[in-house]
Design a protein around this nucleic acid. Structure first.
Lengths: 143, 143
DNA sequence: AGATATTAGTTTGATTTGTAACTAACAACA
DNA sequence: TGTTGTTAGTTACAAATCAAACTAATATCT
């Protein structure tokens, strides 16, 4: 590749970041306006809704989020009454996080919205493109 | 698609964001440690190095960056003596930004580093994958 | 000319994030 | 039992971001 061909739009970190921002906007608007949630909050909620009750540590690992971020998101979701904490008797350092009835409702709504949003985005691609895109992104995330 | 298939890792905004973060880390380390630069500063520098002198507005448009971000990055790069401003006589609201000799040097170094980094990332993909990935990301960015 | 609207860029204050130090509970081992 | 180490989670302070208000220069319209 000559220098002339190498453009920001072909630089993977840049291209990925631009694409990530472009796709985030739409969905972000949804959970922000509707539930006053931040991105990390949505991710934490999603993990609890999708995989069931777990500790903050568990969420950190699954979601590759730093513990301070999770700590703050959990606090915010607790304020909103979307989740509750239960200290484990066996080891009182651990607290199990679980969604409240209300939290489940919000999760269900956001889950549907996410699916719909994703489907809409997918309209722009062929089956093959979408598959390869997914595969590439997965590979990259594991680097 | 059933609900069981829909996972965060298949939700495009999430997958893109994870991939973007994963690839950013390596390169970010380079310009941070070496030149104490922030991401926006690197982008502004790149635009000036790649496309020649232009106004802050021009950079905003090309890079889809908000003007306050650009304003701060320009200030920081000016402090570092990587660029200078020249107020245009025709319209004194505009200022032309151009790289200094030193700025050109830094750009050249970062440009090479970016190319090398990108080449290394590309090793993980076939020609086809890389082409499709690029095409998809470009499409998404224009949505 | 004078009033009003735009435009380029900066500043400010509130929100968000990142880093590192901290607390509390438990474990391991002398 | 006491000392040292580790782990889960929080807090505090600095750095970065965002939105909105602001300044200064120019354009437009009467």
């Amino acid at each position: 590749m000559t220098d002339d061909d190498f453009d920001l739009s072909r630089f993977l970190p840049y291209a990925l970041n631009q694409a990530a921002e472009a796709t985030s906007i739409g969905f972000q608007g949804y959970y922000r306006q509707r539930y006053g949630m931040l991105r990390t909050e949505w991710r934490v909620l999603f993990h609890l809704g999708r995989y069931g009750a777990m500790t903050a540590k568990g969420i950190c690992e699954r979601a590759s989020l730093h513990k301070t971020k999770v700590s703050r998101a959990v606090h915010a979701l607790e304020q909103k009454r979307f989740l509750v904490r239960t200290t484990q008797e066996r080891d009182r350092r651990h607290e199990t996080l679980s969604l409240t009835r209300q939290g489940e409702g919000v999760y269900a709504d956001l889950f549907q919205a996410a699916k719909a949003y994703d489907a809409k985005l997918s309209e722009n691609f062929s089956e093959t493109e979408r598959e390869i895109l997914n595969r590439c992104l997965e590979k990259i995330s594991k680097l």
